[in-house]
Structures are given as structure tokens and as C-alpha cells.
Computed example of a mutant assay.
Amino acid sequence: MEDKITTLPKVTIVIPTYNTARYLLDAIDSVKKQTYQNVELIVVDDGSTDDTPNLLMNHPMQFSHFRQENAGQSAAMNFGWKQSSGDLLGYLSADDRLHPNAIETIVSRMALSPEAVLAYPDFCVIDEDSNYVRTITAPEYSENLLIANFQCLPGPGALFKRATWALVGDWNTGLRNIPDMDFFLRFCQHGPFIRVPEALADFRIHSGSTTYNPSSAQRSDEPVTVIKDFYNTNGLPKRFLRWKKRAMANAYLLSGFMHGFSGRYLISLKQMFRAATLSPSSIFSRKMISYVIGIYKSASVKK
């Protein structure tokens, strides 16, 4: 058995956690109960003030855990990956879960596509009580969707190559809303991603999640910052340049939605006007319509 394990690529999963004691054990157990035999788990407590430290100290399963002063999810994951030894790396939010065959399935799929630098599966949405809500079928990978549409394709369960991470570098700790998008835009410059067409993870929605909470003005401007930094990258592949206006327009659209969802309606309109100036077709896009509906619904709830 030991010889078989050592021939498998080692996979490291980092779980960053901050005051998520209610869900943390589910996340840890979902990694420790993988059918894949060569998994390293690292949990980084980002200065939690709840029962998280006690849970980590008393968990019966073997894994590495560290504690740092509160510095944000990105800093926690960066720290965890620096302690890791896996050939493939990944992360799992402390309120999400992996399905038992997730890592085995993704590693097998990556072995069939050696040129791929990252693989991501479909996933399920669950509620705060772990009840199934729906299944999300992730889009097939294309540079057009990721860059021009400014669409974050990988969700929970994604794995990526350590060698590529060494080239790309850490998550940007200055970004709080979309550091993943910034990371994936840097990653795609080194090779393709692949979708694994099977639901292999659970994404949990609950009142404490930052995904659906209002954001500050600075955080709402992150999409524009990220796409500008991407197009200022030295040595950016020339094929990406044809999408610059469309990518900028979609970044402004997302920024406009985030401002509008957070109640800054005038700034939201200005961002969407900038999007229309760059790409007039964006006015009639599904994305624009869905964003406007989302802002309207959030404004109605606040009333």
C-alpha cells in the first residue's frame, strides 16, 4: 500500500478558517475521508475568536494546523501553501465540502490532460443546514469566457499544479472580493484549464457568507483594478489583446453591480455607462439584465 501511495501525485488541500466553527469539522472530515490515498491537509486559523482553536486541537484525525493573526483568507491560504509539499494544490473554504471521490476523480482527469494547469468540477449548492439546494454545471473552459466575459470559471474543488503556482505567485492579499479571479487570470497565461463534468464539491450559502453581502466602495472597484493589472502584465500573450475592450466592459459591469448591490446607485450607473462606452452591446447583454434585476431586488429588500 505504501508503494502505491508514493506513486500517486501528492495533493495538498488548504482550509483557511475564520470564525467558522459551526462548519469547520464538516470541511475537514470531507478531506480526510477522500478515496484518494495521498492527501495532505493543512488548516490555517486566521485568528478566530470562536471555538475554532479548540476544535482543531481536539480533532481525532491527523492533519497540520497553524494559527496566525487575522490577515484575511488570501494570507491564510498563501501561508498554508508555503507549508505544503503537494504536487497538486487546492483550497477549500471552511464552510464548503468535498465529495468523497473528488480528489481521485480530478487527479485522474488531469492525468489525461498533462497540458492542463488547473482542473475544476461541477458542484452542488447546500444551505446552512447542509440541505441540497441545486447543482451548478460549470461552463467548459475557454479563454474567451474567463478573460473577455470576466467570468470566474473554477469553483470549489479546483486543483492546480504546484509548478505553475511557483511561476504565478500567491493570491493578492490586497484584494478581498475577487482574489480568485486575479489568480486565475494570472494562471491561464501558463496553460489551459479543464472542467471535470461531475459534481464533486458542496458550496454552502448562509447568512455569514461574504458572497452575497454588500461590499465597500474599494472592494466594489476590484474588478476594474484586476482587469487593468492583467492588461498591464509584461509579456501578456498577444491573443488576449483582442478582448481588452470587452473584458474592461465586463469588469465595469461587475463593479457597477457590486456598487449598486451595496446601495451606491449613482456610482453603479457611472460604472455601467463606462461599460457601455467600451462595448455598446453590453447594454443589452444577459449579464447587464441580470445585474440590474439583482440591484433592483436588493434595493426592494432594503426598503
Rank of each mutant, 00 (worst) to 15 (best):
D122Y: 09
M61Y: 14
Q37S: 10
N149K: 12
P154A: 00
W81N: 05
P192L: 03
A116G: 03
T12S: 12
P280R: 02
R22Y: 12
T137F: 09
E222I: 00
R242S: 14
Y91V: 09
F240K: 01
M110K: 05
G260Q: 09
S216R: 10
W165A: 01
Y265I: 15
T17A: 15
S262R: 14
K287T: 03
M110L: 13
Q189L: 13
E222T: 02
E128A: 08
L254T: 13
L92I: 09
V107F: 04
T164G: 02
P192E: 04
V117W: 02
K32L: 15
F160L: 11
G72S: 09
R204F: 07
C124Q: 10
L88H: 04
P53I: 01
Y212K: 07
I267R: 14
N78Y: 03
G86D: 07
I295M: 15
F123M: 07
A163C: 03
V133A: 01
Y132M: 01
K33H: 14
D29F: 06
L112V: 08
R242G: 06
G263V: 15
G174M: 01
M57V: 09
M61V: 08
N54T: 04
P60D: 03
K32G: 08
S93A: 10
H65Y: 15
K302G: 11
L254D: 07
F203M: 12
L89E: 03
M248F: 13
G86K: 04
T35Q: 03
S300K: 15
P53L: 01
P114K: 11
R274D: 11
P16G: 12
L200Q: 05
T35W: 01
F183I: 00
A71P: 05
W243P: 00
H190T: 02
A76Y: 06
I5Q: 12
S262E: 12
T135D: 05
A27E: 07
S209M: 00
S207P: 00
D127M: 08
I15Q: 03
A102H: 01
K238H: 06
S215C: 13
D87H: 01
I295E: 06
F187C: 01
K4I: 13
R242M: 10
A116Q: 04
E143L: 03
P114V: 11
R246K: 15
P114N: 11
